[in-house]
Amino acid sequence: MIVWLLLLAGLGSTPKSHTVEIRGMEFHPAVLTVAVGDTIVWINRDIVPHTATGMRRKWDSGQLQQGDSGRYVPSRVGRVPYTCTLHPTMKGMLIVRKE
């Protein structure tokens, strides 16, 4: 039984959580590699509100006030650029891998 559970865990499909801090008008880290099904959490540390928003607004955290967080779970492999709609000069990138 234990061996069976270890084997299941070893298949490596357990989703992880990643944190992106928004501070000083930048995403930290600006480029993040994740797996399909992982959760990315953005936390706004700035005084001013921000968003984390995919291109063509396919996904959008909505406005995050200071201390707020928003999340996104990518379902497809690929490069996922995103921005803050309030501050379009802010850029971030998710690199989504199969696992």
Binding site: G24, M25, E26, D46, I47, P88, T89, M90
Partner: peptide
Amino acid sequence: TDVRPAIATHLEHAKQ
């Protein structure tokens, strides 16, 4: 100093 990056970002946004 915390506000400075926001002002710099506004400046870049305006230039864009």
